[in-house]
Simulated scan of single mutants.
Amino acid sequence: MLIGNHLSASKGYAAMGKAALALDANTFAFFTRNPRGGKAKEIDEKDVEKFLNFAKEHEFGKIVAHAPYTMNLCAAKEDVRSFSKEMLLDDLKRMEYTPYNYYNFHPGAHVGQGAEKGIALIAEALNEALKPEQTTTVLLETMAGKGTEVGRTFEELREILDRVELNDKMGVCLDTCHVWDGGYDIVNDLDDVLNEFDRVIGLDRLKAVHFNDSMNDCGSHKDRHAKIGEGKIGAEAMRRVALHPLLEGRPFILETPNDDEGYRREIQMVREWTR
């Protein structure tokens, strides 16, 4: 199984690879820059080469980069949208140093403009940014529906995908906490939720899973992650997600509130489920 967690990119790609291996992970996620925005660290090509060799040697799966939370492609303010587009363009250039991996982002918040307007602005930005020659697959993340978030339903994500011209470069990252908080009952109706995803979006688009328990009840629209087995989803339901045949082969990324030892325990727990 491909399982890993979010790592700090501050020390470079090779260091992240070693940190992941130390946790018994074979994939990982990282922010392309400070999660709250700012300038990205310069790419060290020698460091990238070391990582690529290391990842091949240890049979790592695809890694999942994460855009900063400040990137909002459908912001009401034009300067915020422009800044977000610049980040997206820069990040996609940087992703090509580690080709054929995933770049995940929160679709954004429409801030009172309405979901339809937000969807149009997100698709417009993606149409400007995506290139036919890129190897990176860009993932829309399923959202909990807090505030004016776009992507709270599978239908909203489908609408974005339908408007993207190069949508063969697009996929979806399913966040277990977010879909639960968004009202999809993965505890009692996991098969139905995945079938609904397949009907609306298509399981071929589901490229990665953010594997998190939730502090909140189903449909709360609050987005508060919990450690595996310590939230309202619970260990047994999380186990069913991890073992579901329709999700096999995707990277599972832990975003639980943990330190390294906590992540090590969760990774070990998931590995024991799969034995």
Rank of each mutant, 00 (worst) to 15 (best):
A144S: 13
V150G: 13
L190Y: 12
E155R: 15
Y184E: 05
G108K: 10
V187Y: 02
T137Q: 15
E141D: 03
L140D: 07
P132Q: 12
A109W: 01
P99S: 13
V150W: 11
Y103M: 01
C177Q: 08
E96C: 06
A120V: 01
I186C: 06
T137W: 14
C173Q: 05
M143P: 08
H110I: 09
T98G: 02
K117N: 05
D185F: 05
E155P: 03
T153Y: 02
G171M: 02
Q113N: 07
T136Q: 04
L190N: 15
G114E: 07
T135V: 11
E124I: 00
G147R: 09
V138A: 08
G145Y: 05
H110N: 11
L130H: 02
L126M: 15
T142P: 11
V164W: 08
T136F: 02
Y100A: 11
E155D: 13
E156M: 06
R152E: 13
Y103Q: 02
G114T: 09
H110C: 14
G151N: 00
V164Q: 09
R163E: 14
T176E: 04
L166Q: 12
K117Y: 01
L174V: 07
I160D: 05
N101D: 00
T142S: 14
K131W: 07
Y184W: 07
R163Q: 15
I119V: 11
F105G: 01
D181S: 14
N188T: 00
G151D: 01
G183M: 06
G151T: 00
T153I: 05
R152P: 06
E128F: 04
D162M: 11
E116T: 02
F105H: 13
L174D: 02
A115Q: 05
D168G: 08
L190I: 08
N188P: 01
E141C: 10
L161C: 07
D168E: 14
D168T: 03
K117G: 00
V111R: 04
E165Y: 13
I186R: 10
N127C: 05
H178L: 11
E155V: 14
V138F: 08
A123G: 14
L130R: 03
T98N: 13
P99R: 07
E116H: 03
V187R: 12
D181C: 14
N127G: 07
T136M: 04
W180V: 03
H106M: 00
H178E: 10
C173G: 03
T148M: 03
L166G: 06
P132I: 11
W180N: 11
A115F: 02
P107I: 05
L130A: 04
L190F: 10
T148K: 02
Q113A: 13
P132H: 09
M170W: 04
R158S: 15
I160A: 09
